[in-house]
Amino acid sequence: MNFIAALGRFVLEICAEIGRLCVFIKDSVWHCFAPPVYPRLIFDQMVRIGYNSLPVVGLTAFFTGGVLALQIYIGGTRFNAESLVSSIVALGITRELGPVLAGLMVAGRVSAAIAAELGTMRVTEQIDALATLSTNPFKYLVAPRVIAAVLCLPLLVVVADTIGIMGGYIVGTKSLGFNSTVYIKNTVDFLEFDDIFSGLVKSAVFGFIIAVMGCYHGYNSRGGAQGVGRATTNAVVSASILILSANYVLTSLLFSS
């Protein structure tokens, strides 16, 4: 009987959490469009989320492109399909690895930072202070982060795509013996606009997930330093899982059409 009661409480708590998250997402989206807008805060967040993430995203993309070229070459030699290395690297990076890896890296970096910042503001009553100063915390704290993340992730993915393909090119031409001109020609000929566009659409959704999960867990954190730590962990874990889940759903939708 105790087990059933515990299970029931767990299910009710899950339902309540989903409900709270839905309300939070609704409020976040509403405040992104309703005035006033804070351009300076959005720009500050774009620098923190986008510009400051460039090194980590660039390095990840470079090595992923290189490893991809090596793996495809090793697999391709079994079927005499080595010539497909450049095309598959470009396709893999633009459609999947660019947006997903950039999303996961930024989730680790930015979601945690947002949750820690807002969590600290919550436990030190700074969010309550905002409200008493006639400033809506959603508009001032949440909306600029969500807008900045949605705008920045596609830009980061463009960079990741470029560097990832370049990583594959360097490994392909310097280590695997491909002709430079042929490698570039194959890449350009094979890539279609939809391959890049689908990655950008995905990354905008990932940006939304990263910012919202960071803000949600930080905004609702409780219990001092331990609560802030828990919020940070939850933000990264939930953002990462949601990115991978959303990636599957978006891939199904984008490529079925």
Binding site: T120, T124, E125, Q126, D128, A129, A131, T132, L133, S134
Partner: peptide, 16 residues
Amino acid sequence: MLQHFGMLFQGAALFD
């Protein structure tokens, strides 16, 4: 209403 209120918080709650 809050425009007519002022509040001093326990830990001051200044924005870092």
